[in-house]
Design a protein around this nucleic acid. Structure first.
Length: 463
RNA sequence: GGCGACAUCGCCAAGUGGUAAGGCAGAGGUCUGCAAAAUCUCCAUCCCCAGUUCGAAUCUGGGUGUCGCCUCCA
């Protein structure tokens, strides 16, 4: 399979460090607020990467950090007149809730920056000791000039940059591009003791420490995150790691594109900020997942009401197809795929192998939907395709709660009452008493029960 | 100013030299008391110009447009 690598700017054949094992890391949230729909894209996407690699037979170790020490958290704590720990705790809980609702599998490890403070300090000290970083007025900076490879990930040439819109006011640095590893304590901030006095770490070190520690290697397979993290965050991560180990922090750097809101960049000033939590109130998790996967992960994607409704309808089509063959009745049976199905499966794998072309993979699923729904096809063919539809959909993270969605279980009593209502309506229908029969149907529909008059009698389903 | 991405039907989107997948929406037919479902049919020459080629949405050059990064924002 091929993966687009930001480091080489090309689709590269994916070769793991260790056979059949993938070690991957993706930057997690800074827990100072509910995460927004834009944050959700990498969370969902790397969940799919993980699921697909597992489907391919790899043993995947997936680490995602939680940044629980940061200016934004401290500011929020001041704003809400509480401690930064309380803020972190609150939003970690919220994060976990939302992630679960989105159907995202828990990473293998999900460590917090604060848990590894000793390791962070140790790493910074090593950088200082070996001459890659220096102390200045209690702050510690990484010297970008000490690493000749600096800029290779983002394609930036540090000496070539325009002085910039923002002039570097910090005269403590040797080079304007030098970045902070440790900042000296300011009043009221949480601090930790270090060789350079009380202070706290910069943002770029935690990911190096957490990834290497929890993946148990200096150089792992995949590092992911949003495009905006390429510079400076990932560039800086790699610099710290490579300068010490002589190896790239990761072999493949994957970056997802941004989400726009109705054509505009999402921002607080435009007031077009949607938290994942709010979006989940209106659309189900699978519609959101479909929305993300309907376009290639590196492309920018526009979030709007119309596209969400379309995504929602599209996902319902998957379920309609499965209902049409009564999927739950045979879900545990062993079913052999036909040659046609195997060809579809191959198509799906080929699409995903090509740098996770999920849009194409979804098209394969719709081909299966067509077969499953088609009353002209042999019922066994339809069942086989349904089975494959679920198999492939699961790889993309759909159908995680398929029984609940497909099940029409209302409890014994409700079902009996419903049967009675249907009988009454059928009597009314027989007498061509349309007002009564329609009244029953409409009232049930308002309660979320859809009646369907079919050749085989009246059936119903939950809407 | 530096670096980079993208431009395919009303909307979303695949396509990487061989004559435009798929989804949503829409139109019409069958079925039907109506509705829903099902089913059949229809619906683009790919931003512009020039070039390479037997042949280009796909390659090259130029233009136009949109967007991102260069500010600890995914």
């Amino acid at each position: 399979m091929k993966i687009y690598n930001t480091l080489t700017k090309s689709k590269d054949e994916f070769v793991t460090n260790e056979a059949n094992k993938v070690k991957m890391y993706a930057c997690g949230p800074t827990v100072y607020n509910y995460f927004h729909i834009g944050n959700a894209r990498p969370f969902v996407f790397f969940d799919v990467v993980r699921r697909y690699l597992e489907y391919k037979g790899y043993e995947v170790t997936y680490v995602q950090n939680l940044t629980d020490i940061d200016d934004k958290i401290i500011n929020k704590a001041i704003e809400e007149n509480t401690t930064f720990k309380a803020i972190a705790k609150k939003y970690i809980a919220a994060f976990e809730e939302d992630i679960e609702k989105l159907g995202i599998k828990k990473p293998t490890h999900q460590p917090k920056a604060s848990e590894v403070m000793g390791d962070i300090i140790k790493l910074i000290k090593k950088l200082v000791d070996e001459g890659f970083a220096y102390e200045s007025q209690g702050d510690v900076y990484f010297s970008v000039e000490s690493f000749k490879g600096y800029g290779k990930l983002s394609g930036k040439n540090i000496d070539d940059q325009k002085a910039g819109a923002r002039v570097e006011a910090n005269t403590n640095k040797k080079h304007p591009a030098d970045f902070t590893l440790w900042k000296t304590a300011k009043p009221g901030e949480p601090t930790w003791g270090s060789p350079w006095g009380q202070g706290r770490p910069g943002w770029h070190t935690e990911c190096v420490v957490l990834s290497q520690k929890y993946l148990d290697t200096e150089s792992f397979d995949i590092h992911g995150g949003g495009v905006d993290l390429v510079f400076p965050h990932h560039e800086n991560e790699n610099a710290q790691a490579e300068v010490l180990s002589g190896k790239k922090l990761a072999n493949y750097w994957m970056h997802n594109g941004f989400i726009n809101i109705e054509g505009e960049k999402m921002s607080k000033s435009l007031n077009n900020f949607f938290t994942a939590r709010d979006v989940l109130k209106e659309y189900n998790a699978e519609a959101i997942r479909f929305f993300f996967l309907s376009k290639h992960y590196r492309s920018p994607i526009d979030f709007n009401r119309q596209i969400m409704q379309e995504s929602d309808t599209a996902v319902k089509n998957f379920y309609n197809a499965l209902k049409s063959v009564d999927y739950l009745s045979f879900k545990d049976e062993d079913i052999n795929y036909s040659d046609a199905d195997l060809a579809k499966k191959e198509e799906f794998v080929k699409a995903m192998d090509d740098d996770f072309n999920s849009a194409k993979a979804l098209a394969v699923m719709f081909d299966l939907v067509k077969i499953v729904k088609s009353t002209k096809e042999d019922i066994n063919e339809r069942k086989e395709s349904a089975k494959l539809l679920v198999e492939l959909g699961s790889v993309l993270g759909f159908f995680t709660d398929i029984e609940a969605v497909l099940s029409n279980d209302l409890g014994d009593l409700s079902e009996k009452l419903l049967a009675i209502l249907i009988e009454v309506r059928n009597n009314a229908k027989a007498e061509k008493n349309w007002p009564v029969s329609d009244l029953i149907r409409d009232k049930l529909l308002a309660q979320g029960i859809q009646l369907l008059d079919t050749k085989d009698g009246t059936k119903w389903e939950k809407k």
